[in-house]
């Protein structure tokens, strides 16, 4: 399994996700849509595992590789939310996002490097990146939900239960962000002797983490839901800065060890 087979897997996976999303909007039962979407995710996971075996290292090093995990977790998060709460919009949105990231990998593949520098050869590498990608996927899903609710609010009032879904997803995402950050700290101590060195990526990870923490503390006092949605979108922009924006930030050029 390598990047040459990716295009075919991408087409099959995207079709399954899209069909699953369409079925979710048409069918009253959740089972069929969940099964079809899950089949897409499992196919995608099979590709990732195959790529892992071909490369001889976890496919988590390059931007393109982290996008694979993001697509996978985004689809799984969408399926989970749909199966749990039954929102009809989540699978189409989740599938759209996941397919978009798959398309970026098809049309603009980053150079996929076989080599892995010594610092990355650690037991922390896989869990650190995986939980971060899961957190990003959850935060992506909650941002989509917030945008949807915000747009819809002119027609239909936002229900308290819907805000609770937002809050639950943020708490879950923040939990994963925390796990990723703590694992990164424990790893950094093992590799460089310092658990926190204010590397630009670390600073932006802290910014994102504090941003969502602010949301969690502010929410009980926010009467206007639109402010909550605004803050969620702002936090997601911070998250994007942390994920890839920092690579292009003039203030961080040549200063980060997290370059990929």
């Amino acid at each position: 399994m390598n990047w040459n087979t990716f295009t075919w897997i991408a087409i099959a996976t995207s079709l399954l996700w899209i069909v699953g999303a369409v079925v979710s909007t048409r069918s009253r039962r959740r089972g069929p849509a969940v099964a079809i979407s899950l089949a897409g995710s499992l196919l995608f996971l099979t590709f990732i595992i195959g790529l892992w075996m071909t490369l001889g290292r976890p496919p988590m090093r390059t931007m393109g590789e982290t996008r694979l995990w993001y697509s996978l977790f985004l689809s799984l998060t969408g399926i989970f939310i749909y199966a749990r709460w039954g929102y009809k919009w989540i699978l189409p949105f989740g599938a759209m996002m996941a397919v978009m990231f798959v398309c970026i990998n098809v049309f603009k593949p980053e150079i996929h490097d076989r080599a892995m520098m010594p610092a990355l050869q650690s037991i922390w590498f896989v869990p650190h990146v995986t939980v971060y990608m899961f957190a990003y996927a959850l935060m992506g899903a909650v941002t989509l939900f917030a945008i949807y609710l915000w747009i819809r609010s002119s027609r239909k009032e936002v229900q308290p239960e819907e805000m609770q879904v937002c809050d639950a997803l943020v708490r879950m995402g923040w939990g994963f962000l925390t796990l990723g950050m703590v694992m990164g700290a424990l790893w950094a101590k093992q590799a460089w002797g310092d658990y926190w060195a204010w590397d630009p990526k670390e600073t932006w990870a802290a910014i994102t983490w504090v941003g969502y923490l602010l949301y969690m503390h502010l929410r009980p006092r926010l009467k206007d839901n639109r402010k909550a949605f605004g803050l969620l979108i702002f936090c997601f922009i911070l998250l994007q800065m942390c994920w890839w924006g920092v690579n292009y930030l003039p203030a961080a050029q040549d200063l980060s060890i997290h370059t990929y």
Binding site: A168, L169, R171, M172, G175, F176, L179, V182
Partner: peptide
């Protein structure tokens, strides 16, 4: 880390 796990489980 424990707090984060708790946060995920009881989200």
């Amino acid at each position: 880390m424990l707090a984060a796990l708790g946060m995920i489980m009881f989200a």
